[in-house]
């Protein structure tokens, strides 16, 4: 396994290099803002970001060594969480606002023109405030994002493949152990990053706990966001682009 031969420092370097570029909406959002206009911009942006997310995942050391089915499942499970932690990271220095892209920044009031969105907006802003409070470092952020990807279907029943007879098979056990090994490597990298900060041992492990506890909030907001997007789709409120639609449908299918 690639990740097994990398030191934590080398792994961090590789994960930092995998970071996607800034994605621009390109083309101004129509003002005054309307529900359809905002949803159109947000979904267009999300679709663009998803394409870059696939390239990002492939650059996480060890990811492409997983089976193609595992790669698909992981991305289908985590995509909105990954979009959301990226949004929080971009917004960390802008209290009360969400920086969806360098050319699309929304205030709470602007977000409120989309029905049901303001609750999610507030949860995103609150989670972003927590990142600010923790003074999250970029190296920690990239590790957390990789952990979201690798941990995303840890508790998903394998019968979701629709191949119940195969569950617990040799290939599947190997796949799971590879995945756990990869996740451990990223954990080692995060622990290493925290250890460089000059904190006492106690402060180091409480920081690790605080960072990991962020992930449960991100999962929660993502689930809320997924339901919201699904409702918007049902109301024909958004033109869902091909990759976004595919990822949303897969998520709805897994969770039902």
């Amino acid at each position: 396994l690639v990740s097994a031969v990398l030191t934590p420092k080398q792994l961090i370097e590789r994960i930092m290099e995998a970071e996607p570029p800034d994605i621009y909406l390109l083309g101004d959002i129509k003002r005054p803002l309307t529900e359809a206009g905002v949803m159109m911009s947000l979904t267009r942006l999300a679709d663009k970001e998803l394409v870059h997310m696939i390239s990002w995942a492939k650059k996480i050391p060890g990811f492409v060594e997983l089976s193609l089915l595992d790669q698909v499942h992981l991305l289908e499970c985590c995509w909105l969480e990954v979009l959301m932690i990226g949004l929080m990271w971009r917004s960390v220095d802008h209290p009360g606002q969400l920086i969806f892209s360098p050319d699309l920044c929304l205030s709470r009031e602007e977000g409120s023109c989309v029905q049901g969105f303001v609750e999610i907006f507030d949860m995103l802003v609150a989670a972003t405030a927590r990142l600010r409070e923790l003074k999250l470092q970029k190296e920690e952020y990239v590790c957390l994002k990789a952990m979201i990807l690798l941990n995303s279907n840890m508790c998903l029943s394998s019968s979701d493949d629709g191949e119940g007879g195969d569950s617990g098979g040799d290939g599947e056990i190997k796949g799971r152990s590879r995945l756990l090994h990869l996740l451990d490597s990223v954990t080692d990298a995060l622990v290493w990053v925290i250890s460089k900060t000059g904190l006492t041992y106690r402060q180091q492990y409480t920081r690790l706990a605080h960072l990991l506890m962020l992930l449960s909030h991100i999962r929660h907001v993502s689930n809320k966001g997924m339901d919201h997007l699904h409702c918007m789709k049902m109301k024909n409120m958004v033109p869902l682009y091909d990759l976004l639609l595919e990822m949303l449908d897969a998520h709805i299918m897994h969770s039902s």
């Binding site: 394409v51 696939i54 698909v72």
Partner: peptide, 13 residues
């Protein structure tokens, strides 16, 4: 998952 598979299996630059 046609598009996702396509993106996962194409060689990156």
């Amino acid at each position: 998952h046609t598009k996702l598979l396509q993106l996962l299996t194409t060689k990156s630059e």
